[in-house]
């Protein structure tokens, strides 16, 4: 299993910008927002938590379709399915590799982007905490969606349509954590609820993802 993780990370790095692509997308979203809503700090500060979470979510979405597609096309997935590792584990490791190349860099870079959006001082800690706890769920849900659509020729758009509604609870609690942090309210409640979703997702979706992969491999 560790071999699979190392291979996937190595592939992400060698493919050119495995880490960079999601970050660059996040950066562009954050830069474009002030052009759309105006440069005033009074406008930017209240919407900053939502924009940061939305940007991270969309950046995550960008690379989902590659989670299984390349392995499906070159036959690796068939070989993985007959290997002495559970397919559920393969799904979980793939989601972890996706998180390490997108969710983690996004989490670490988010405070810098927060400055661009005039995120008030109280929000930074909550921003990092909520992204660190929430983005694993985004990767795991995304891996499930990618497993559902792996056999389809134009699965990318369909994948977004399937995955985005599943992201709603995480987005609500994640952005709310930061918003409450900014306003000095108790941000612990939404953070804990979101962590609950994340852990539930991590526990259950590998099974759903593996079931979908088995169907797609038939």
């Amino acid at each position: 299993m560790r071999g699979l993780l190392i291979r996937d990370l190595r592939l992400a790095i060698r493919a050119g910008g495995g880490f960079g692509l999601a970050l660059a997308f996040f950066l562009i979203v954050v830069i474009l927002v002030p052009f759309g809503v105006g440069p005033s700090a009074n406008v930017l500060a209240p919407i900053a938590p939502g924009i940061l979470w939305l940007g991270a979510l969309l950046a995550c979405l960008l690379s989902l379709d590659r989670i299984f597609a390349t392995d499906f096309e070159d036959g690796s997935l068939e070989f993985l399915a007959t290997a002495p590792v559970p397919l559920e584990g393969v799904v979980a490791v793939k989601a972890l590799a996706h998180w390490l190349t997108t969710g983690l860099p996004l989490t670490l870079a988010a405070p810098v982007f927060g400055i661009f959006l005039n995120l008030p001082g109280g929000g930074y800690g909550w921003l990092v905490a909520s992204l660190a706890l929430g983005t694993p769920a985004l990767s795991m849900i995304g891996a499930f969606g990618a497993a559902l659509t792996v056999g389809l020729k134009r699965g990318g758009l369909l994948l977004s349509l399937l995955v985005l509604p599943l992201y709603i609870p995480t987005l609500i609690f994640g952005a709310d954590t930061v918003r409450r942090g900014v306003e000095g309210l108790d941000a612990g409640t939404p953070l804990i609820l979101m962590a609950g979703i994340t852990f539930g997702t991590l526990a259950l979706l590998p099974f759903a993802g593996a079931a979908a992969l088995r169907v797609n491999l038939r």
């Binding site: 499930f144 559902l148 056999g151 399937l162 509604p165 599943l166 709603i168 609870p169 609500i172 609690f173 709310d176 939404p190 609820l193 979703i197 259950l204 979706l205 759903a208 079931a211 979908a212 169907v215 797609n216 038939r218």
Partner: peptide, 26 residues
């Protein structure tokens, strides 16, 4: 294949629809 995959989606979707309902209330 379509029947299998949509059924799995329906199952997972139901759980998330339920979660969304409470998240939205919150």
């Amino acid at each position: 294949t379509a029947a299998d995959l949509t059924s799995v989606l329906c199952l997972v979707g139901s759980v998330f629809a339920f979660l969304s309902r409470y998240a939205v209330n919150f």
